[in-house]
Design a protein around this nucleic acid. Structure first.
Lengths: 345, 345
DNA sequence: GAGTTTACTGTAAACGTTTACATTTTGCAC
DNA sequence: GTGCAAAATGTAAACGTTTACAGTAAACTC
């Protein structure tokens, strides 16, 4: 299975290896006649360029790494689809790094770029503050990195980003619950290190505050971004002495757990409890009842993030383009059936 | 951002580059004293080996490609987790190739290995017969390929594989429905080119035949492996003049669509219609009602597939170990609440 | 202390490309 | 045909490793 090399092709075509190389990379610099000879030789030998040698020589792998909490979450699946679309169009491959199951540190991640294993990084998951510090330190604004989905942490503002306005969206979601007459609203949020859900929590708190509604102790519970976690969180919420009539879950995944948990103790949704999700994943429309939620253009975000990263990579490590303001994309409230007026007491 | 090279380290440590290389790859061959000198130099320069150069020189990328229909399906997410576990342990990175959204042909896939971009391939998705032919032709038993989850197509028996006995499992599922008293049982199957679901269909037909139950025209419907497809399929099934009292869905994903579709036209599950799934994804336990389904050890399959691939890669392209019998893993029937006796007529 | 093994280190080639530079060929104007 | 510019091609170095081989130093054996 030894593959033919460029040398073999050159020999057969009766030209130098430089000419063969040119045939593939800048065909306009080589005459019609020789191009045909070389083409024939390539066909005859079944030559494919050794990508390893190319990458080595060019100093580029055309591989980018995506760091995210979990590809299991259908929201990220959609983002990934966008990233992949763009990557295909631009000739890049993707390596995925799940922070949830993988202990790769920021140092190691940076090392992958530094050691040239990867041309750039897409961050869909906030890392520990320490981690982000490492990244921005290592970078000296040099690692091509783009942040997606999340508001960018202060230490990370050196990197460009693409996302919705999570604070505004969460405010909108909370205000919708308020507009339906709820005053006692609970929150199932993500882990403390998830900026994304922190922002949503912030939006919720802002909305409650503006509406002059109080948030009692025990109304904000960590659901850990998983179904299981949300089941536990809901149980705790429902056992509260002064329990909420509505729950805002900062992801659909957790809303699914919440729905299940509430129903399993005999509550009807939305009659006894209203549930609001976030993300509008493909499951949101088929839960029972279908979820009222916030929709994000996940695939579009993925595409834009990837294209942005390509720009970072292409324009090279020197020119710090300067314009790193976040690209904001639009979200949308999707009204389905999991939210209703609270029952009269 | 020019990274220090081995030469720089050698210069600082006052040794040859060969010694530096040995320090990293076979430290036992170098004296304590020089090892320390070199370590110091590495620290001082912040040297990281250029992985591109290493890959090039070694002729190995430590990257493997996984071909699957869609990472969106939570079942495959679990398989991927297993693959990733094993890959991490063995020092490999993963590149994912979704056939559903990607038109990469078998030729191109093979090319990735031939051109050394990838050390091996894990096939979780059957490809078109043509595609598999290309792969086995290209291979001359040379491409390291392992098939996972699926029964191996006849043309692919040259490759090792890891999966459950899909036929037996589907038979078991169908027999369970029969044991609960159902005689009119429908099937929502996958696309025609999905061997996996073909096998399950085969198991269903075998069970029905052995129980001397007929399968009417229109009882077997293609659900396209998606929620949407299953919703349509269910609608068609329920409109059947002699409609089934139970439906076996060959994936949980489709069972979710089926559940939703049935309930949306006012049927109660399982009172009016029993629904059986397959895969036991993380959503199966939280549907309403929770799904009775077949559980596969997805993560274990992933791990075993990856370890098997490592063996294929390591033992090299020459020795055709010969033992390519499928590794079978155990499945299990999970009884929840979506199946009951059929209502008396 | 000579001879022999062992442990360590250095030299240099090789991996398959790309590309700056030098050289040759072609095309064109006169 | 001569001269000259433009186009096409060849030569050879370079990219950063690994590794076979040769060489040297250290550690034994007698």
């Amino acid at each position: 299975m030894t593959t033919a090399s460029i040398k073999e092709v050159a020999r057969i075509a009766g030209v130098s290896i430089a000419t063969v190389s040119r045939c593939m990379n800048s065909p306009d610099k080589v005459s019609e006649k020789t191009r045909i000879k070389v083409q024939d030789a390539i066909l005859k030998t079944g030559y494919t360029p050794n990508t390893l040698a190319q990458s080595f020589r060019r100093g580029r792998t055309n591989v980018v790494m995506v760091v995210l909490p979990s590809i299991g979450d259908p929201f990220f699946t959609d983002v990934m689809r966008g990233i992949r679309n763009a990557a295909d169009a631009k000739g890049y491959s993707i390596i995925i790094n799940e922070t949830q199951f993988n202990t790769m540190t920021a140092d190691e991640i940076a090392a992958m770029v530094v050691s040239r294993q990867t041309d750039g990084i897409i961050l869909l998951a906030s890392m520990s503050p320490f981690g982000t510090e490492v990244l921005s330190a290592k970078s000296h604004r040099a690692l091509p990195i783009v942040v997606g989905c999340e508001t960018v942490a202060p230490e990370l503002t050196v990197f460009p980003s693409v996302h919705i306005d999570n604070v505004a969206a969460a405010k909108e979601a909370t205000n919708y619950l308020i507009s339906r007459g709820h005053t006692r609203i609970g929150l199932i949020c993500g882990a403390a290190n998830s900026l994304l859900t922190k922002d949503r929590e912030f939006g919720y708190r802002a909305a409650m505050h503006e509406a002059e509604l109080g948030i009692e102790d025990g109304w904000v519970v960590n659901g850990d971004l998983t179904i299981e976690g949300a089941i536990r969180a809901t149980r705790s919420l429902l056992n509260h002495s002064h329990r909420p009539t509505a729950v805002f879950c900062t992801t659909d995944e957790m809303a699914i757990g919440c729905l299940h948990s509430a129903k399993s103790v005999g509550m009807r949704v939305p009659a006894d409890l209203s549930v609001m999700g976030f993300d509008d994943t493909r499951y949101a429309a088929v839960t029972d009842p279908p979820l009222t939620t916030i929709s994000q253009p996940a695939t579009e975000i993925g595409e834009r993030v990837m294209y942005r990263l390509c720009r970072e990579i292409e324009q090279g490590r020197q020119s710090s383009s300067g314009d790193n303001r976040p690209e904001l994309v639009a979200h949308r409230l999707i009204v389905r059936e999991s939210v209703a007026e609270p029952a009269a007491e």
